[in-house]
């Protein structure tokens, strides 16, 4: 298989420099852009498999760049953002970003996110029949959830909820996205609702619901199912 092409959009030369070196060493081909305009041009012409986008760019807001990219491309986008800017992250995710990484970050974290996003993009064409995470398996054909082979009884809503998370395994899903997928777009703001259901779901699938390993909380943003 060809090495995936990554477009790194960041205006800080220091960050560009280490990302180029590190991602090349990790087996990616790296293109770089320093401005939003450059990023758009390369996204359109360079056919990248994935875009790493810093939200703070010198010429324009990174979210605007993201919005423009989504006009013509479904290429996975991972945004780089600061930890204290939840609103910005959620906005970017709702605009169509696939995931985010908080600055400062380690290279291991970034590459894991890159792989999850690439894998999801590859599976989007033909969704998996069966996904297993940490002993919990979900069979979409049979609508069956088992842990270590033993069936777990879920309500229809709990099943739908878990399905959304498992289909996006490894990626963050925002509150709004989950609510819209399970309960419909009209319930986009009822996050209290969601917390209750997640609690019930964890009680059924996690080995230790107080220290969940399968459905993890992304504080202020949403939930993330662990890597399969």
């Amino acid at each position: 298989m060809n090495e995936p092409r990554i477009l790194v959009v960041d205006d800080e030369p220091q960050i560009q420099r280490f990302l180029s070196v590190a991602l090349s060493a990790a087996g990616f081909r790296v293109q770089t852009a320093e401005t939003g305009a450059q990023a758009l041009r390369l996204a359109a012409t360079g056919a990248p498999d994935l875009i790493v986008l810093d939200l703070g760019l010198p010429d324009r807001d990174g979210k605007d760049v993201l919005r423009d990219i989504r006009q013509f491309s479904t290429t996975p986008v991972i945004v780089l953002s600061a930890r204290d800017r939840e609103a910005e992250k959620i906005e970017a995710l709702d605009l169509g970003a696939d995931d985010y990484v908080e600055k400062p970050f380690g290279i291991g974290e970034l590459t894991a996110r890159l792989r999850a996003a690439l894998r999801h993009a590859a599976h989007a064409a033909q969704p998996a029949q069966r996904i297993e995470i940490d002993g919990v398996a979900m069979d979409f054909d049979k609508r069956l959830v088992t842990r270590d082979g033993a069936p777990i009884k879920l309500t229809p809503k709990e099943y739908d909820l878990l399905a959304v998370l498992f289909r996006n395994a490894g990626r963050v899903v925002t509150h709004r996205q989950i609510l819209a997928a399970v309960w419909g777009p009209a319930h986009g703001e009822d996050t209290q609702y969601l917390r209750v259901f997640i609690g019930q779901l964890r009680a059924k699938i996690e080995r230790d619901p107080t220290a969940p390993t399968i459905v993890k909380t992304e504080p202020g943003v949403g939930y993330r199912a662990a890597e399969p």
Partner: peptide, 17 residues
């Protein structure tokens, strides 16, 4: 954060790759 990101990123890259 920018220098911290560069330092952390470079250090982890060196260790990993």
């Amino acid at each position: 954060r920018t220098p911290l990101s560069s330092i952390a990123g470079a250090a982890t890259s060196l260790r990993a790759f």
